[in-house]
Design a binder for these strands. Structure first.
Lengths: 203, 203
DNA sequence: GGGCCCTGATGACATCTGTCATACGAGCTG
DNA sequence: CAGCTCGTATGACAGATGTCATCAGGGCCC
Protein backbone atom coordinates (compact mmCIF):
# COMPACT_ATOMS: atom_id res chain seq x y z
CA UNK A 1 0.00 0.00 0.00
CA UNK A 2 1.41 3.38 -1.05
CA UNK A 3 0.64 6.15 1.44
CA UNK A 4 0.00 9.58 -0.10
CA UNK A 5 0.02 13.19 0.99
CA UNK A 6 -2.04 15.45 -1.27
CA UNK A 7 -1.49 19.22 -1.25
CA UNK A 8 -3.37 21.73 -3.38
CA UNK A 9 -5.10 24.95 -2.45
CA UNK A 10 -8.01 24.25 -4.77
CA UNK A 11 -10.44 22.08 -2.85
CA UNK A 12 -12.14 21.04 -6.05
CA UNK A 13 -9.04 19.56 -7.63
CA UNK A 14 -7.67 18.16 -4.41
CA UNK A 15 -10.95 16.49 -3.53
CA UNK A 16 -11.42 15.08 -7.00
CA UNK A 17 -7.86 13.74 -7.12
CA UNK A 18 -8.28 12.30 -3.67
CA UNK A 19 -11.27 10.21 -4.62
CA UNK A 20 -9.68 9.31 -7.94
CA UNK A 21 -6.51 8.01 -6.29
CA UNK A 22 -8.33 6.38 -3.40
CA UNK A 23 -10.20 4.27 -5.96
CA UNK A 24 -6.94 2.50 -6.75
CA UNK A 25 -6.61 -0.24 -4.21
CA UNK A 26 -2.86 0.05 -3.76
CA UNK A 27 -3.01 3.78 -3.02
CA UNK A 28 -4.21 5.50 0.11
CA UNK A 29 -4.43 9.23 0.77
CA UNK A 30 -3.35 9.64 4.39
CA UNK A 31 -3.31 13.44 4.57
CA UNK A 32 -4.42 16.53 2.67
CA UNK A 33 -3.21 20.11 2.89
CA UNK A 34 -4.18 23.43 1.33
CA UNK A 35 -1.15 25.47 2.41
CA UNK A 36 2.58 24.90 2.32
CA UNK A 37 2.84 25.19 6.09
CA UNK A 38 0.25 22.46 6.58
CA UNK A 39 1.97 20.42 3.93
CA UNK A 40 5.32 20.48 5.72
CA UNK A 41 3.70 19.75 9.08
CA UNK A 42 1.59 16.86 7.80
CA UNK A 43 4.50 15.35 5.90
CA UNK A 44 6.53 15.19 9.11
CA UNK A 45 3.58 13.84 11.03
CA UNK A 46 2.31 11.17 8.63
CA UNK A 47 5.53 10.29 6.81
CA UNK A 48 3.83 9.42 3.52
CA UNK A 49 5.58 7.41 0.80
CA UNK A 50 4.74 9.97 -1.85
CA UNK A 51 3.75 13.65 -1.57
CA UNK A 52 1.85 15.18 -4.48
CA UNK A 53 2.28 18.96 -4.25
CA UNK A 54 0.72 21.69 -6.30
CA UNK A 55 3.32 24.27 -7.25
CA UNK A 56 1.04 27.27 -6.76
CA UNK A 57 0.12 27.23 -3.10
CA UNK A 58 0.05 29.89 -0.41
CA UNK A 59 1.86 31.18 1.48
CA UNK A 60 5.06 30.23 -0.36
CA UNK A 61 4.97 27.60 -3.10
CA UNK A 62 5.31 23.89 -3.71
CA UNK A 63 9.06 24.03 -4.30
CA UNK A 64 9.68 25.68 -0.96
CA UNK A 65 7.52 23.05 0.68
CA UNK A 66 9.36 20.28 -1.14
CA UNK A 67 12.73 21.61 -0.04
CA UNK A 68 11.56 21.87 3.56
CA UNK A 69 10.13 18.36 3.53
CA UNK A 70 13.31 16.89 2.08
CA UNK A 71 15.50 18.84 4.48
CA UNK A 72 13.42 18.17 7.55
CA UNK A 73 12.91 14.42 7.15
CA UNK A 74 14.81 12.10 9.45
CA UNK A 75 15.08 8.68 7.85
CA UNK A 76 13.94 8.27 4.25
CA UNK A 77 12.11 11.35 3.01
CA UNK A 78 8.96 10.96 0.92
CA UNK A 79 9.23 11.02 -2.86
CA UNK A 80 7.80 14.25 -4.13
CA UNK A 81 5.70 14.91 -7.21
CA UNK A 82 5.13 18.51 -8.24
CA UNK A 83 1.90 19.25 -10.10
CA UNK A 84 1.60 22.59 -11.84
CA UNK A 85 -0.45 24.54 -14.32
CA UNK A 86 2.48 26.81 -15.04
CA UNK A 87 4.67 24.11 -16.56
CA UNK A 88 7.69 25.84 -18.05
CA UNK A 89 11.18 24.43 -18.54
CA UNK A 90 12.67 26.89 -16.08
CA UNK A 91 10.29 25.72 -13.40
CA UNK A 92 11.16 22.11 -14.15
CA UNK A 93 14.83 22.91 -13.69
CA UNK A 94 14.20 24.53 -10.35
CA UNK A 95 12.07 21.56 -9.30
CA UNK A 96 14.71 18.98 -10.17
CA UNK A 97 17.34 21.07 -8.41
CA UNK A 98 15.15 20.99 -5.30
CA UNK A 99 15.18 17.20 -5.40
CA UNK A 100 11.67 16.31 -6.49
CA UNK A 101 11.04 12.96 -8.20
CA UNK A 102 8.12 13.82 -10.43
CA UNK A 103 7.03 16.83 -12.46
CA UNK A 104 3.52 16.73 -13.88
CA UNK A 105 1.64 19.53 -15.66
CA UNK A 106 -2.07 19.83 -15.07
CA UNK A 107 -2.57 18.97 -18.71
CA UNK A 108 -1.72 15.37 -17.89
CA UNK A 109 -4.69 12.98 -18.19
CA UNK A 110 -6.03 12.21 -14.75
CA UNK A 111 -5.95 8.49 -15.43
CA UNK A 112 -2.19 8.52 -15.75
CA UNK A 113 -1.49 10.07 -12.39
CA UNK A 114 -1.95 6.84 -10.43
CA UNK A 115 0.67 5.12 -12.54
CA UNK A 116 3.08 8.00 -12.11
CA UNK A 117 2.60 7.79 -8.35
CA UNK A 118 3.44 4.07 -8.43
CA UNK A 119 6.53 4.65 -10.56
CA UNK A 120 7.79 7.37 -8.29
CA UNK A 121 7.05 5.33 -5.17
CA UNK A 122 9.47 2.60 -6.24
CA UNK A 123 12.22 5.11 -6.88
CA UNK A 124 11.79 6.05 -10.52
CA UNK A 125 11.61 9.62 -11.63
CA UNK A 126 8.93 11.00 -13.88
CA UNK A 127 9.15 14.19 -15.89
CA UNK A 128 6.53 15.23 -18.39
CA UNK A 129 8.13 14.36 -21.73
CA UNK A 130 6.92 17.47 -23.49
CA UNK A 131 8.40 19.84 -20.92
CA UNK A 132 11.57 17.80 -20.69
CA UNK A 133 12.01 18.19 -24.43
CA UNK A 134 11.46 21.93 -24.19
CA UNK A 135 13.90 22.15 -21.31
CA UNK A 136 16.56 20.52 -23.44
CA UNK A 137 16.00 22.64 -26.52
CA UNK A 138 14.91 25.99 -25.10
CA UNK A 139 17.54 28.40 -23.98
CA UNK A 140 18.30 29.07 -20.38
CA UNK A 141 17.10 32.13 -18.60
CA UNK A 142 19.54 34.85 -19.69
CA UNK A 143 18.96 37.02 -16.63
CA UNK A 144 21.24 37.41 -13.65
CA UNK A 145 20.02 36.99 -10.08
CA UNK A 146 19.87 40.73 -9.52
CA UNK A 147 17.95 41.26 -12.72
CA UNK A 148 15.43 38.63 -11.68
CA UNK A 149 15.17 40.24 -8.27
CA UNK A 150 14.33 43.69 -9.58
CA UNK A 151 11.90 42.24 -12.11
CA UNK A 152 10.15 40.38 -9.32
CA UNK A 153 9.77 43.66 -7.47
CA UNK A 154 8.58 45.37 -10.65
CA UNK A 155 5.78 42.90 -11.27
CA UNK A 156 3.05 44.84 -9.54
CA UNK A 157 3.78 48.00 -11.50
CA UNK A 158 5.94 49.71 -8.89
CA UNK A 159 8.08 52.75 -9.64
CA UNK A 160 11.87 52.69 -9.57
CA UNK A 161 12.06 54.24 -6.12
CA UNK A 162 9.77 51.56 -4.69
CA UNK A 163 11.72 48.78 -6.34
CA UNK A 164 14.95 50.28 -5.04
CA UNK A 165 13.59 50.32 -1.52
CA UNK A 166 12.36 46.73 -1.86
CA UNK A 167 15.69 45.31 -3.01
CA UNK A 168 17.93 47.67 -1.00
CA UNK A 169 19.76 49.18 -3.95
CA UNK A 170 20.26 52.71 -5.23
CA UNK A 171 17.57 53.82 -7.71
CA UNK A 172 20.17 54.31 -10.42
CA UNK A 173 21.45 50.79 -9.95
CA UNK A 174 17.94 49.44 -10.22
CA UNK A 175 17.54 51.28 -13.49
CA UNK A 176 20.73 49.73 -14.79
CA UNK A 177 19.55 46.22 -13.97
CA UNK A 178 16.15 46.87 -15.45
CA UNK A 179 17.78 48.29 -18.52
CA UNK A 180 20.00 45.26 -19.08
CA UNK A 181 17.12 42.88 -18.41
CA UNK A 182 15.02 44.70 -21.00
CA UNK A 183 17.86 44.54 -23.50
CA UNK A 184 18.29 40.80 -22.93
CA UNK A 185 14.60 40.16 -23.38
CA UNK A 186 14.28 42.48 -26.34
CA UNK A 187 11.47 44.58 -24.89
CA UNK A 188 11.03 48.30 -24.39
CA UNK A 189 9.66 48.67 -20.88
CA UNK A 190 10.42 47.11 -17.54
CA UNK A 191 6.83 46.01 -17.29
CA UNK A 192 6.97 44.10 -20.52
CA UNK A 193 10.16 42.51 -19.23
CA UNK A 194 8.50 41.52 -15.96
CA UNK A 195 5.53 40.14 -17.83
CA UNK A 196 7.75 38.14 -20.12
CA UNK A 197 9.92 36.77 -17.32
CA UNK A 198 6.79 35.71 -15.48
CA UNK A 199 5.39 33.94 -18.51
CA UNK A 200 8.63 32.07 -18.91
CA UNK A 201 8.54 30.96 -15.31
CA UNK A 202 11.70 32.80 -14.37
CA UNK A 203 10.34 34.86 -11.50
CA UNK B 1 -30.38 10.69 -15.58
CA UNK B 2 -28.72 14.10 -15.87
CA UNK B 3 -26.53 14.46 -18.96
CA UNK B 4 -23.38 16.56 -18.50
CA UNK B 5 -20.90 18.45 -20.65
CA UNK B 6 -17.57 19.04 -18.93
CA UNK B 7 -15.21 21.74 -20.22
CA UNK B 8 -11.82 22.58 -18.74
CA UNK B 9 -8.45 22.98 -20.38
CA UNK B 10 -6.69 21.16 -17.55
CA UNK B 11 -6.93 17.47 -18.33
CA UNK B 12 -6.07 16.60 -14.77
CA UNK B 13 -9.01 18.45 -13.25
CA UNK B 14 -11.41 17.59 -16.03
CA UNK B 15 -10.55 13.91 -15.87
CA UNK B 16 -10.76 13.81 -12.09
CA UNK B 17 -14.11 15.60 -12.08
CA UNK B 18 -15.36 13.33 -14.81
CA UNK B 19 -14.74 10.18 -12.84
CA UNK B 20 -15.99 11.82 -9.68
CA UNK B 21 -19.30 12.83 -11.26
CA UNK B 22 -19.66 9.59 -13.19
CA UNK B 23 -19.58 7.77 -9.88
CA UNK B 24 -22.95 9.30 -9.05
CA UNK B 25 -25.52 7.06 -10.62
CA UNK B 26 -27.90 9.82 -11.65
CA UNK B 27 -25.16 11.76 -13.51
CA UNK B 28 -23.56 10.93 -16.82
CA UNK B 29 -20.79 12.88 -18.58
CA UNK B 30 -21.71 12.77 -22.27
CA UNK B 31 -18.99 15.05 -23.63
CA UNK B 32 -15.75 16.74 -22.64
CA UNK B 33 -13.99 19.74 -24.13
CA UNK B 34 -10.69 21.53 -23.58
CA UNK B 35 -11.39 24.64 -25.65
CA UNK B 36 -14.29 27.04 -25.91
CA UNK B 37 -14.80 26.24 -29.59
CA UNK B 38 -15.12 22.53 -28.83
CA UNK B 39 -17.38 23.37 -25.95
CA UNK B 40 -19.82 25.27 -28.12
CA UNK B 41 -19.75 22.61 -30.83
CA UNK B 42 -20.27 19.72 -28.44
CA UNK B 43 -23.04 21.51 -26.59
CA UNK B 44 -24.97 21.88 -29.84
CA UNK B 45 -24.26 18.29 -30.80
CA UNK B 46 -24.99 16.50 -27.53
CA UNK B 47 -27.54 18.87 -26.01
CA UNK B 48 -26.58 18.12 -22.41
CA UNK B 49 -28.83 19.03 -19.48
CA UNK B 50 -26.02 20.82 -17.66
CA UNK B 51 -22.73 22.25 -18.92
CA UNK B 52 -19.92 22.71 -16.40
CA UNK B 53 -17.49 25.26 -17.84
CA UNK B 54 -14.17 26.43 -16.55
CA UNK B 55 -13.90 30.20 -16.83
CA UNK B 56 -10.26 30.20 -17.89
CA UNK B 57 -10.19 28.36 -21.19
CA UNK B 58 -8.59 29.10 -24.53
CA UNK B 59 -9.12 30.61 -26.97
CA UNK B 60 -11.72 32.95 -25.44
CA UNK B 61 -13.19 32.13 -22.00
CA UNK B 62 -16.04 30.30 -20.31
CA UNK B 63 -18.35 33.31 -20.35
CA UNK B 64 -18.04 33.72 -24.10
CA UNK B 65 -18.73 30.03 -24.50
CA UNK B 66 -21.73 30.25 -22.19
CA UNK B 67 -23.17 33.18 -24.13
CA UNK B 68 -22.72 31.35 -27.42
CA UNK B 69 -24.29 28.18 -26.10
CA UNK B 70 -27.30 30.05 -24.73
CA UNK B 71 -27.69 32.08 -27.91
CA UNK B 72 -27.23 29.17 -30.28
CA UNK B 73 -29.55 26.67 -28.65
CA UNK B 74 -32.83 25.94 -30.34
CA UNK B 75 -35.27 24.53 -27.81
CA UNK B 76 -34.29 24.55 -24.15
CA UNK B 77 -30.64 25.50 -23.69
CA UNK B 78 -28.53 23.63 -21.15
CA UNK B 79 -28.13 25.04 -17.67
CA UNK B 80 -24.64 26.39 -17.27
CA UNK B 81 -22.32 26.22 -14.27
CA UNK B 82 -19.17 28.32 -14.34
CA UNK B 83 -16.21 27.01 -12.37
CA UNK B 84 -13.34 29.37 -11.73
CA UNK B 85 -10.21 29.85 -9.70
CA UNK B 86 -10.40 33.60 -10.16
CA UNK B 87 -13.63 34.06 -8.23
CA UNK B 88 -14.19 37.77 -7.79
CA UNK B 89 -17.48 39.58 -7.40
CA UNK B 90 -17.04 41.39 -10.71
CA UNK B 91 -16.69 38.09 -12.50
CA UNK B 92 -19.79 36.78 -10.81
CA UNK B 93 -21.74 39.80 -12.02
CA UNK B 94 -20.58 39.26 -15.57
CA UNK B 95 -21.46 35.59 -15.32
CA UNK B 96 -24.98 36.20 -14.08
CA UNK B 97 -25.48 38.83 -16.77
CA UNK B 98 -24.50 36.20 -19.34
CA UNK B 99 -27.28 33.95 -18.06
CA UNK B 100 -25.41 31.21 -16.25
CA UNK B 101 -27.18 29.23 -13.53
CA UNK B 102 -24.29 28.32 -11.27
CA UNK B 103 -21.09 30.02 -10.13
CA UNK B 104 -18.61 27.83 -8.28
CA UNK B 105 -15.08 28.72 -7.21
CA UNK B 106 -12.45 26.04 -7.32
CA UNK B 107 -12.20 26.30 -3.57
CA UNK B 108 -15.53 24.45 -3.34
CA UNK B 109 -15.22 20.92 -1.89
CA UNK B 110 -15.38 18.39 -4.68
CA UNK B 111 -18.03 16.40 -2.91
CA UNK B 112 -20.49 19.26 -3.13
CA UNK B 113 -20.31 19.65 -6.88
CA UNK B 114 -22.63 16.73 -7.64
CA UNK B 115 -25.33 18.26 -5.48
CA UNK B 116 -24.91 21.63 -7.17
CA UNK B 117 -25.28 19.98 -10.56
CA UNK B 118 -28.52 18.34 -9.45
CA UNK B 119 -29.87 21.61 -8.06
CA UNK B 120 -29.08 23.47 -11.22
CA UNK B 121 -30.50 20.71 -13.41
CA UNK B 122 -33.96 21.14 -11.90
CA UNK B 123 -33.87 24.89 -12.47
CA UNK B 124 -32.39 26.29 -9.28
CA UNK B 125 -29.53 28.69 -9.33
CA UNK B 126 -26.41 28.28 -7.26
CA UNK B 127 -23.96 31.01 -6.40
CA UNK B 128 -21.09 30.53 -3.99
CA UNK B 129 -22.34 32.24 -0.83
CA UNK B 130 -19.01 33.82 0.03
CA UNK B 131 -18.65 35.53 -3.32
CA UNK B 132 -22.29 36.53 -3.39
CA UNK B 133 -21.79 38.28 -0.05
CA UNK B 134 -18.75 40.11 -1.38
CA UNK B 135 -20.61 41.07 -4.50
CA UNK B 136 -23.29 42.71 -2.40
CA UNK B 137 -20.95 44.64 -0.15
CA UNK B 138 -18.00 45.44 -2.37
CA UNK B 139 -18.13 48.45 -4.58
CA UNK B 140 -18.62 48.24 -8.28
CA UNK B 141 -15.80 48.62 -10.73
CA UNK B 142 -15.28 52.39 -11.02
CA UNK B 143 -13.75 52.21 -14.50
CA UNK B 144 -15.42 53.08 -17.77
CA UNK B 145 -15.44 50.72 -20.75
CA UNK B 146 -12.68 52.65 -22.50
CA UNK B 147 -10.56 52.68 -19.38
CA UNK B 148 -10.94 48.94 -19.05
CA UNK B 149 -10.07 48.53 -22.70
CA UNK B 150 -6.82 50.46 -22.50
CA UNK B 151 -5.89 48.70 -19.27
CA UNK B 152 -6.46 45.35 -20.94
CA UNK B 153 -4.11 46.41 -23.70
CA UNK B 154 -1.61 47.71 -21.13
CA UNK B 155 -1.40 44.42 -19.26
CA UNK B 156 1.58 43.01 -21.13
CA UNK B 157 3.68 46.12 -20.47
CA UNK B 158 3.07 47.79 -23.83
CA UNK B 159 3.93 51.43 -24.53
CA UNK B 160 1.32 54.09 -25.18
CA UNK B 161 1.82 53.95 -28.93
CA UNK B 162 1.21 50.20 -28.99
CA UNK B 163 -1.87 50.49 -26.83
CA UNK B 164 -3.16 53.27 -29.05
CA UNK B 165 -2.71 51.08 -32.11
CA UNK B 166 -4.44 48.17 -30.39
CA UNK B 167 -7.54 50.11 -29.39
CA UNK B 168 -7.61 52.47 -32.41
CA UNK B 169 -7.32 55.70 -30.48
CA UNK B 170 -4.91 58.61 -30.56
CA UNK B 171 -1.92 58.19 -28.21
CA UNK B 172 -2.91 61.31 -26.30
CA UNK B 173 -6.38 59.96 -25.73
CA UNK B 174 -4.98 56.70 -24.44
CA UNK B 175 -2.90 58.64 -21.96
CA UNK B 176 -5.97 60.48 -20.77
CA UNK B 177 -7.84 57.24 -20.14
CA UNK B 178 -4.86 55.68 -18.43
CA UNK B 179 -4.48 58.78 -16.33
CA UNK B 180 -8.08 58.76 -15.18
CA UNK B 181 -7.98 55.02 -14.51
CA UNK B 182 -4.88 55.49 -12.39
CA UNK B 183 -6.54 58.30 -10.49
CA UNK B 184 -9.61 56.17 -9.82
CA UNK B 185 -7.54 53.26 -8.58
CA UNK B 186 -5.19 55.45 -6.57
CA UNK B 187 -1.99 54.17 -8.14
CA UNK B 188 0.96 55.91 -9.75
CA UNK B 189 1.60 53.93 -12.94
CA UNK B 190 -0.54 52.42 -15.64
CA UNK B 191 1.02 49.07 -14.94
CA UNK B 192 0.04 49.14 -11.31
CA UNK B 193 -3.46 50.05 -12.48
CA UNK B 194 -3.57 47.14 -14.91
CA UNK B 195 -2.28 44.80 -12.24
CA UNK B 196 -4.90 45.99 -9.80
CA UNK B 197 -7.76 45.76 -12.28
CA UNK B 198 -6.70 42.24 -13.13
CA UNK B 199 -6.61 41.20 -9.49
CA UNK B 200 -10.10 42.56 -9.02
CA UNK B 201 -11.36 40.59 -11.98
CA UNK B 202 -12.28 43.69 -13.98
CA UNK B 203 -10.28 42.95 -17.09
C1' DG C 1 51.76 44.22 -6.27
C1' DG C 2 49.42 44.96 -10.78
C1' DG C 3 45.90 43.89 -13.81
C1' DC C 4 41.12 42.20 -14.49
C1' DC C 5 36.40 41.23 -13.85
C1' DC C 6 32.17 41.90 -11.11
C1' DT C 7 28.86 44.48 -8.39
C1' DG C 8 26.98 48.68 -7.13
C1' DA C 9 26.75 53.60 -7.88
C1' DT C 10 26.58 58.29 -10.22
C1' DG C 11 25.51 61.88 -13.65
C1' DA C 12 23.98 63.48 -18.18
C1' DC C 13 20.83 63.23 -21.77
C1' DA C 14 16.94 61.92 -24.82
C1' DT C 15 12.61 60.02 -24.62
C1' DC C 16 8.42 58.49 -22.53
C1' DT C 17 4.73 59.19 -19.07
C1' DG C 18 1.36 61.41 -16.27
C1' DT C 19 -1.21 65.76 -15.66
C1' DC C 20 -3.83 69.34 -16.99
C1' DA C 21 -6.13 72.91 -19.70
C1' DT C 22 -8.44 73.20 -23.69
C1' DA C 23 -11.03 72.29 -28.08
C1' DC C 24 -14.43 70.23 -31.15
C1' DG C 25 -18.29 67.56 -32.65
C1' DA C 26 -22.36 64.34 -31.46
C1' DG C 27 -26.16 63.65 -28.91
C1' DC C 28 -29.47 65.01 -25.37
C1' DT C 29 -32.38 68.03 -22.76
C1' DG C 30 -34.53 72.21 -21.43
C1' DC D 1 -32.22 76.91 -30.46
C1' DA D 2 -28.88 77.33 -26.38
C1' DG D 3 -26.74 74.87 -23.05
C1' DC D 4 -25.03 70.58 -21.46
C1' DT D 5 -22.49 66.36 -21.13
C1' DC D 6 -19.63 62.83 -23.17
C1' DG D 7 -16.10 60.90 -25.98
C1' DT D 8 -12.09 61.97 -28.44
C1' DA D 9 -8.15 64.74 -29.46
C1' DT D 10 -4.26 68.17 -28.95
C1' DG D 11 -0.45 70.75 -26.82
C1' DA D 12 2.51 71.99 -23.02
C1' DC D 13 5.13 70.88 -19.09
C1' DA D 14 7.22 68.50 -15.06
C1' DG D 15 8.82 64.41 -13.63
C1' DA D 16 9.92 59.45 -14.46
C1' DT D 17 12.25 56.24 -17.33
C1' DG D 18 15.76 54.11 -20.42
C1' DT D 19 20.58 54.53 -22.13
C1' DC D 20 25.15 55.13 -21.70
C1' DA D 21 29.77 56.43 -20.12
C1' DT D 22 32.19 56.33 -16.15
C1' DC D 23 33.87 55.36 -11.51
C1' DA D 24 34.92 53.19 -6.84
C1' DG D 25 35.70 49.16 -4.17
C1' DG D 26 36.48 44.02 -3.68
C1' DG D 27 37.88 39.54 -5.10
C1' DC D 28 40.83 36.79 -7.80
C1' DC D 29 44.52 35.25 -10.79
C1' DC D 30 49.18 35.80 -12.57
Amino acid sequence: MIRLLLADDEELLRGALCSLLDLENDLQVVAQAATTTDTVRLAAQHRPDVAVLDLEMPPTDGLHAAAQILAGADGTPPRIIIVTRHARPAVLRRALAAGVSGFVPKSTPAARLAQIVRDVAVGHRYVDPEIAASALTENECPLSDRELEVLRAARTGAQVSEIAAAVHLAPGTVRNYLSSAMAKLGVATRHAAAHRAWEEGWI
